[in-house]
C-alpha cells in the first residue's frame, strides 16, 4: 500500500498549492488598509462605511437621498460598488459602472452626490476583524 512516485508527485503538488494558498490568505489577512466607501454632499458632513460592512448584492441595494430624488447603490463583492438606478434624466452615474479601487468615484451632479472609494490605514487589519463603521 506504499505510495508510488506519481502519487508522491501529485501529493507534493497539492500540498505545495495548499500551503501557497494558506500563505496568501495569511499575508493578505494582514493587510494594512481598509477599503472604505465615502458618500458626500456639499455642505454635509461626509459618511464613511467600510466596504466589508456593506450589504451585498441585489438584496442589499440601498437608496441614497439626493437633491433630485437620489440614487440606488449596490455592492457586489466580485465587481465593486455601482449605481443601479438614479432619478436624474441623464443617468450618467449609472453609466459610470463599477468602482472597486481606492481613488475611484461616481458623481451624480443633479443629485449633488459624490461616491468614492478610499483606502484608510487599518489598525484592526490584523486579519481577525473587519470594521463595521468609521467615526468621522
Amino acid at each position: 500500500m506504499g505510495l508510488g512516485k506519481t502519487d508522491k508527485q501529485i501529493l507534493a503538488v497539492i500540498l505545495a498549492a495548499a500551503l501557497a494558498l494558506l500563505a496568501f490568505q495569511y499575508f493578505s489577512g494582514h493587510r494594512s488598509q481598509e477599503l472604505v466607501l465615502e458618500i458626500s454632499r456639499p455642505g454635509a458632513e461626509r459618511l464613511r462605511m467600510p466596504v466589508s460592512s456593506l450589504p451585498q448584492g441585489e438584496q442589499g441595494r440601498w437608496h441614497v437621498e439626493g437633491a433630485a430624488g437620489g440614487v440606488y447603490l449596490s455592492y457586489w463583492p466580485d465587481q465593486g460598488v455601482h449605481v443601479d438606478r438614479a432619478t436624474c434624466p441623464d443617468q450618467a452615474c449609472v453609466k459610470m459602472g463599477f468602482i472597486n479601487k481606492a481613488g475611484q468615484s461616481i458623481v451624480c451632479v443633479p443629485n449633488e452626490i459624490i461616491i468614492r472609494l478610499i483606502a484608510l490605514e487599518d489598525p484592526a487589519g490584523q486579519g481577525e476583524e473587519e470594521l463595521d463603521g468609521v467615526l468621522k
Binding site: I39, S40, R41, G43, A44, E45, R46, L47, M49, S53, L54, P55, Q56, G57, Q59, G60, W62, H63, V64, E65, G66, L73
Partner: peptide, 23 residues
C-alpha cells in the same frame, strides 16, 4: 447565500450623511 430580509438607506440631515442598515 441565504436570502434574508435586509434594508439600508442613506439620507442627508443635520448637515450630515446618515445611513441606517438593518438586517
Amino acid at each position: 447565500r441565504a436570502k434574508v430580509p435586509s434594508f439600508s438607506s442613506t439620507r442627508f440631515l443635520m448637515d450630515t450623511v446618515v445611513t441606517i442598515r438593518l438586517q
